[in-house]
């Protein structure tokens, strides 16, 4: 009963929150947000049959803080590279990251994180979804970069999405 009414409870919560942020808090906007929050997940649930499992909120907060810190550090590093190095001298190259993650949500989160953090952009996924193509702006040791990404982000995402 509850599952047919609310196929994705977290999505419902998110939509209500977004709607209230967008239109200012009042009883009317909260009610309309609730209508949208019930209607949209039900209408789209046919395209999204599996329910996403999320680990404990504490690990998500920890992950978000780590990523935010890395984004700030990454910005200063990339700004330094852009301003003080000649473009042709940068040792940029593609590297392959073999994935241990299996759920699409976790892989999306990992690819997004990689794009936002130090000198790396995720460029493509292998056709079977088990390896990620990453472009590094400045790297002398590709193996170490891959190991760093795997230990810093992938292991944490595995705990969040695939416990």
């Amino acid at each position: 009963m509850l599952k047919t009414l609310l196929p994705h409870p977290l999505l419902t919560l998110l939509i209500v929150l977004m709607w209230i942020l967008l239109s200012g808090f009042s009883v009317g906007s909260a009610a309309f947000g609730l209508i949208l929050g019930v209607a949209i997940p039900r209408l789209t649930s046919a395209y999204w049959p599996d329910r996403t499992r999320i680990g404990s909120p504490l690990t998500i907060v920890e992950y978000a803080l780590i990523v935010l810190w890395d984004i700030v550090v990454a910005n200063f590093q990339v700004a330094y590279l852009i301003l003080f190095r000649r473009g042709d001298d940068l040792h940029s190259q593609f590297v392959t990251i073999p994935l241990d993650l299996r759920t699409p949500e976790a892989i999306t989160a990992l690819a997004g994180t990689i794009t936002m953090t130090p000198g790396t952009v995720s460029a493509s996924l292998s056709a079977d979804g088990r390896a990620l193509l990453v472009h590094c702006l400045e790297t002398n040791d590709p193996e170490q970069t891959v190991a760093g990404i795997k230990s810093r982000y992938e292991s944490r995402l595995q705990r969040i999405f695939e416990t």
């Binding site: 990454a74 910005n75 990339v78 700004a79 042709d88 940068l90 940029s92 593609f94 936002m116 952009v121």
Partner: peptide, 26 residues
């Protein structure tokens, strides 16, 4: 400014991609 500067300065597209995606978000 740094993001757009990187876009204009760096020599090929994969390198140019690094400037805007990071610098502009912060």
């Amino acid at each position: 400014f740094v993001g757009s500067f990187g876009l204009a300065k760096l020599p090929d597209l994969m390198r140019r991609l690094h400037g805007p995606t990071k610098a502009t978000t912060l």
